[in-house]
Computed example of a mutant assay.
Amino acid sequence: MSDDRRSVKTYVPAEQKDRWQGHADELGMSQSEFVRTMVQAGRRGFSIGGSEKAAEPDPSGSDPEGNDLETRVEAALSEEPLSWEELVEAVVGDFEDQLEETLDALQDHNRIRYNGRKGGYTLVDE
């Protein structure tokens, strides 16, 4: 990963920020690390399940069923203690597997293809 980082700002209700800070503290993470990890985990959760369209996130930002990242972290830690790096790998590795499956499905449905000349995946023109 590159050391070239950029700042991103967002505004959330004070109660939500307090909850995020509490979760970050429980995990021994900075709030920036927590939000970055949460966003990546959330993107992983928007899968194609049965239709060709990705699920839409809840615009309210609420998650009444619990944080999917929390569930994955608990599952990863259910066997043994993990270091920060091992925990990130456990969560990211799962995402990489899902991404590969999604890319395969999109290629099977002729929605994307790998184009070596363009250096990566491209959308198929409809």
Rank of each mutant, 00 (worst) to 15 (best):
T71R: 15
E80V: 09
D58G: 00
N67G: 07
L77R: 15
P59A: 03
T71F: 06
E79I: 00
P64Y: 02
G42N: 14
E89P: 00
A76T: 12
E101P: 02
A75C: 03
Q40P: 08
D94C: 04
E70H: 11
E100H: 10
L99G: 02
R72Y: 08
W84M: 03
L82M: 13
P57K: 02
W84E: 04
E80L: 08
D63A: 10
N67A: 09
S60Y: 00
R43V: 07
E79Q: 14
E100F: 05
V73Q: 14
A76V: 08
A90G: 02
Q98P: 00
E89Y: 02
V92L: 15
A54C: 09
D94V: 03
L82N: 04
Q98E: 13
E65H: 07
A54R: 13
E100L: 10
Q98S: 11
R43K: 08
E74M: 12
E65Y: 06
D94A: 12
E79H: 12
E56D: 03
G61H: 00
G45A: 11
L77V: 04
K53G: 03
A90K: 06
T71K: 15
L82A: 01
S78A: 15
V91P: 09
K53T: 07
G50K: 06
Q98T: 14
S78N: 13
S47V: 13
G49K: 12
S47D: 12
E74P: 04
E89I: 01
A55Y: 03
P81M: 05
F46C: 06
L82S: 02
A76R: 08
S51D: 09
R43L: 13
S51Q: 11
A41H: 15
R44T: 05
K53F: 08
W84S: 09
P57H: 02
V88Y: 09
S60D: 07
P81R: 13
P64H: 01
L87P: 10
L82Y: 05
R72G: 06
P57Y: 03
E85I: 04
A41I: 05
S62Y: 05
F46R: 09
K53C: 01
S51H: 09
L99K: 10
Q40D: 15
W84R: 11
E65P: 00
G66W: 00
V73C: 11
G42S: 11
E96M: 08
D97N: 06
E85W: 00
P57E: 04
S51G: 05
F46G: 04
L87F: 04
V92C: 12
Q98G: 13
G66K: 08
G45F: 01
G66T: 05
P57A: 07
E56N: 05
G66F: 04
N67T: 10
E70M: 06
S51F: 01
